[in-house]
Amino acid sequence: MFVFTIKSLYKKLITLFFVSVISFLIIHLAPGEPSQINPLNPRFTKDDLERYRVAFDLDKPLHIQYLLFFKKLFTGNLKSFKDNQPVMGKITERFYNSLMLFIVGTILTWCLAFPIGIHAAIKRGFTFDRWTTFLSYTLISLPGFFLAYVMIIFVVEVFNVPVLGMRTFGREGIGFPYTPMDKLWHLVLPSILEATAGIAILSRYVRSQMLEVIGQDYIRTAKAKGLTDDDVNYNHALKNALLPFVTMFGMLLPGLIGGSVIIESIFAWPGMGRMGYEAILARDFPIIITLNFFSAVLVLAGTFVSDLLYMFVDPRIKL
């Protein structure tokens, strides 16, 4: 158990190291330097360029740049190219906004996907199952930004309320019950959109997991004992079908950054995905690399936690 933890941690650290090297190389070897982002700017003289390159270590060899980059990142001295603000501060500020969206989206996903999947499995082949199957394929195939625009058109035309941003413009300082309510309303559409694909995929997964358990011999035994349908379905089948979902934590966490780029850009939500998009547009290398690194940390931490949880939950796994 202890050995496994150490070993797995060690493997993850090596993976993380390579991810950081690769993301650093991809960005620094690509054509075009950040210092040349605007060569036509008349106020950007050659001396300025040199000063800029020295200030951000761009004049040093690549491996020294790499070491300096991560030294600065961990000591909190890493500055953004664009506005010279510390990267960690900028990311933490955006992190809470993304986290809020992510938590609401995840709650929506799990609350809807499980009942739908379980019900579809129990009523296999009936109308409900067939419709949810078709619907989940449709939701998986929908481009997220298209759905976003359809919903914006619908909400604005029908309710005539603002939907973009985190708060209604010009309504600052309107007092306690209204500010959180305003924020909550602005959360609704983006979080529904973040949840849609998740609901479709997760409910299919729940359904197939549930079907596999329902086909087992111990379910037949439970039915033969004369237990009620609910007892069989929820106490015997569901408990066993839930096991693999422990691993879902690992797949969930990276959605914090990668999955939200488009939704956050459309809804002008000041989260990490939008910050990444803006950083890409501005060639703000420190932010791009840090976000990549951060998301790799999230993935690896997620898989690590789910490995550990699996050992506690499933007594058949002995290490």
């Binding site: 991810v19 993301s23 960005i27 690509a30 990549n292 998301s295």
Partner: peptide, 19 residues
Amino acid sequence: DIQLSFPTFFLILTVIALL
């Protein structure tokens, strides 16, 4: 494992923007 640790869409976006 390394490829799976990258945020795929973000990576694609970065590379496409740089090329």
